[in-house]
Write a protein that binds this DNA or RNA. Structure first.
Length: 767
DNA sequence: ATGTGCCGGCTTTTT
DNA sequence: GCCGGCACAT
């Protein structure tokens, strides 16, 4: 054995060192089909990266022969980094992608075969909704109570089943006028996409499958290219994704990793049977179970196991850990959502300070999860007042903000000149006197003459507009031409800057007196830095590459590990992540399980899996909280504890301050809270009845959220000062930190206890 | 063409 | 309790 092979052998041995026997087998197994059933926290990312590195180190495959599909771009990037680290060299040429980004790559190469150009636009759900809204109006479909979201869901479901508009129309019940209407909208919607040279999210997958089936020579290229295909989160694949994998894996070995207990995307077509029937599906497939958990304490795992065992019809599986019991789970029942949020803020402060001991937990290692995005309101409210740095992951996404969509529409419109949606969007943004009537006239002219809206802009003289409008359109057309000419040579941020300057978009917002426009300016500046950052990371990247990347960012991609902030996100977004301390909020009937799931087949089991996913994200500290009353639609309703709470053995939970256990506070407690906090009197927030009235105004806070915040001006507190708080009553300052707008104060409020507050925005008054 | 103000519906979850 | 659509005013 020569030195070189000895070295190679060392390297491969090193790749399985420190792995448990099952993990090791999962790394070394070679065969056509492998299912790795990976319980939560069982080290599946480790197994996946080591397996890929092992395939390369043993010369089983070249990098270019490997395709690994992950759920988010962030996970893909992380995996590439880890493989590189393991091999000590970059494995360039590997396809490490999400389903959507892999399909985009394929579609850009082969787009002509589907009647698109390579520079097609990817429409997000907002774009789809805009088109559907127009079609519904045109067809008068609103009399059937059809909404853009409803029709959109129907079309999406169809596409996830690989139905196109024609097959949908064939299978529609002709006696059902609503179904026929949906079918008609579907047909026109597809026509619109094609005309605009665009695909929606679902098309990216579905059209790739259709491409492979219609053009076997194209499919063959990829079937020959890939020798190993690895798919993460396999339990959340839908039929279209499944079909895509089947096409691609014709000659390749397939490795899928997943956990049916964590399947939480049935609503977008995920079919749990893809994983549960894998062995039937791929005869001779090998299955490896990873049951040892390396993440959580035993108490957390016991709770998770107890909850999930209530789902029948699941292959039994029991997570275990070699680490100790750890702390008990902390439970809390608040009087209201605000009270619940206050508890969380207090706990976070405790965890964070721990008086700077070794046990102190950094903000970035703490996360708060919730079922619905609307729950962020109360949390943000309290966090701002408590001076806790936080970040909402997902939610109203950056790229869905109006001003960002406007700016992006300029870029999209010049990159894909056939995109009428984008062109029409910016026609009168900023206002240049081209109103609805003119827009419709332009669109009609385009329709009649088979032109794009963009082309019509250059023929404006034929439309007979007045000199003012004609001038405005000519100016716009010239600007678009100039911007378009920059694409081949200029950087993305240069193009964006030019667009923002020459259109006056920034200027208009800067001069506006709408307080929200201040935040919009900052968002646009943020967009410029995003573009600059992209250019730095991709020196060769051009505008279309940028648009590509932007169109496919997922919520979890926004996570910034370096930011010293608490992360707030939905339970869905939390999948695949882990934190030292986790707060599960709103564990109430109607919220988790969500009321909409009551009537959904399998809904109750899916919601339970969601709870299970939440529990298993925590390493050391798990908090479960709920509120006794919750406001929905502006109406306060009483809530009852979630049925899932009773599935956790009582001895695992330490219910704080709640007398009767089981999450229901005693009457005595309830009254004391109501009294101490001034609830029940209906005063809720800033009752403002404390003499001099500090102003409350719309304010953009540093994390991008726009929130109505109280402003105490330059108020600064010193130790010993007495204050009056609208909720907590009278209190004494016992410590302060920071100064100016960032000053926080620890204040002792009698029976309510000690609270840490951000002085500038807390509803307090010095007395 | 653009601005304002009221009414109604609405919220699961996401690439 | 917020956003969007619509009617009406400028």
């Amino acid at each position: 054995m020569n030195e070189l092979s000895l070295f190679a052998e060392d390297k491969t041995t090193a790749l399985v060192e420190g792995l448990n026997p099952q993990q090791r087998e999962a790394v070394e197994y070679r065969g056509k089909a492998l299912l790795i059933v990976a319980g939560a926290g069982s080290g599946k990312t480790r197994v996946l990266t080591h397996r890929i590195a092992h395939l390369l180190a043993t010369k089983d495959s070249w990098p270019s022969q490997i395709l690994a599909i992950t759920f988010t771009n962030k996970a893909a990037a992380e995996m590439r980094e880890r493989v590189k680290h393991l091999l000590g060299e970059a494995a360039d040429g590997m396809w490490l992608k999400t389903f959507h980004s892999a399909c985009v790559l394929i579609l850009r190469r082969e787009s002509e075969r589907l009647g698109h150009d390579a520079n097609f636009t990817i429409y997000d759900s907002g774009d789809s909704r805009a088109i559907l809204k127009r079609l519904i109006k045109e067809l008068g479909a609103d009399i059937h109570k059809l909404t853009p979201a409803g029709v959109g869901a129907a079309i999406s479901n169809a596409k996830n089943e690989l139905a196109d508009a024609e097959s949908y129309a064939r299978n529609v019940d002709q006696n059902d006028p609503v179904a026929r209407m949906i079918s008609e909208i579907f047909t026109r919607y597809q026509h619109e996409l094609r005309k605009n040279n665009a695909f929606d999210f679902d098309d990216l997958i579905g059209e790739t499958v259709h491409l492979f089936r219609a053009f076997p020579d194209v499919a063959a290229q990829y079937q020959q290219k890939f020798k190993h295909i690895l798919v993460d989160e396999y339990q959340d694949t839908n039929h279209a994704q499944y079909a895509l994998i089947r096409e691609l894996a014709k000659n390749a070995s397939l490795t899928v990793v997943g956990d049916s207990d964590q399947s939480i995307y049935a609503f977008r077509g995920a079919d749990i049977r893809n994983i549960t029937e894998f062995e039937k599906d791929f005869p001779g497939a090998k299955t490896i179970l990873l049951e040892q958990n390396y993440r959580s304490t035993q108490n957390i795992l016991s709770a998770a196991n107890a909850v999930i065992s209530n789902n029948f019809d699941r292959p039994s599986k029991n997570l275990w850990t070699a680490s100790g019991d750890g702390d008990k789970i902390v439970g809390y029942t608040g009087y209201s959502a605000h009270d619940e949020a206050q508890f969380i803020a207090d706990e976070i402060n405790k965890l964070h300070s721990k008086s700077q001991g070794d046990d102190a937990i950094a903000f970035r290692d703490i996360a708060v999860f919730y079922r619905t995005n609307s729950q962020t309101r109360a949390l943000e409210d309290i966090f701002i007042r408590s001076g806790i740095p936080y970040r909402v992951v997902g939610g109203t996404k950056f790229y869905e903000r109006q001003e960002i969509k406007d700016a992006m529409a300029y870029l999209v419109a010049i990159a894909n000149t056939r995109d009428d949606l984008a062109t029409r969007r910016i026609l009168n943004v900023p206002k240049r006197g081209i109103g609805d009537a003119s827009e419709t006239q332009i669109a009609n002219y385009a329709e009649k003459n088979g032109l794009s809206v963009r082309q019509v802009l250059s023929h404006v003289s034929e439309l007979g507009f007045g000199p003012k409008i004609t001038g405005a359109i000519n100016q716009l057309a010239e600007l678009m031409d100039n911007l378009e000419a920059m694409i081949p040579t200029e950087t993305v941020d240069a193009i964006l800057r030019t667009a923002l300057d020459r259109t006056g978009l920034l200027e208009t917002l800067r001069n506006s007196k709408d307080p929200q426009d201040e935040a919009r300016v900052e968002n646009l500046e943020e967009l410029v830095s995003v573009a600059r950052e992209f250019q730095r990371n991709n020196p060769e990247g051009r505008l279309p590459d940028f648009l590509n990347e932007v169109a496919l960012v997922a919520a979890a991609d926004e996570l910034d590990d370096e930011s010293g902030t608490v992360s707030l996100m939905t339970l869905h977004t939390a999948k695949g992540l882990e934190y030292e301390a986790v707060f599960l909020t709103g564990i109430e009937e109607g919220l988790l399980p969500h009321r909409m799931s009551f009537i959904t087949p399998g809904g109750m089991a899916e919601e339970r899996r969601l709870f299970y996913v939440g529990i298993t994200r925590a390493r050391k500290k798990l908090h479960i909280s709920l509120a006794m009353t919750r406001t929905t639609f502006g109406e306060s309703e009483s809530a009852t504890p979630s049925r899932y709470l009773q599935e956790i053995p009582a001895d695992l939970i330490d219910w704080r301050e709640s007398g009767s256990g089981r999450g229901l506070p005693s009457t005595r407690y309830r009254e004391s809270i109501a009294d101490a906090q001034g609830y029940g009197s209906g005063s809720g927030e800033s009752s403002g009845g404390y003499g001099g009235t500090p102003s409350t105004k719309e304010k953009k806070v540093w994390n991008g959220a726009i929130s109505s915040v109280r402003n105490n001006g330059d108020l600064q507190l010193e130790v010993g000062d007495m204050v009056e708080h609208s909720d907590f009553g009278r209190g004494k300052v016992i410590a302060t930190a920071g100064e100016g707008a960032r000053q926080t104060a620890e204040i002792h409020f009698g029976s309510v206890g000690v609270k840490r507050l951000l002085v500038k925005v807390a509803p307090i008054q010095k007395v």
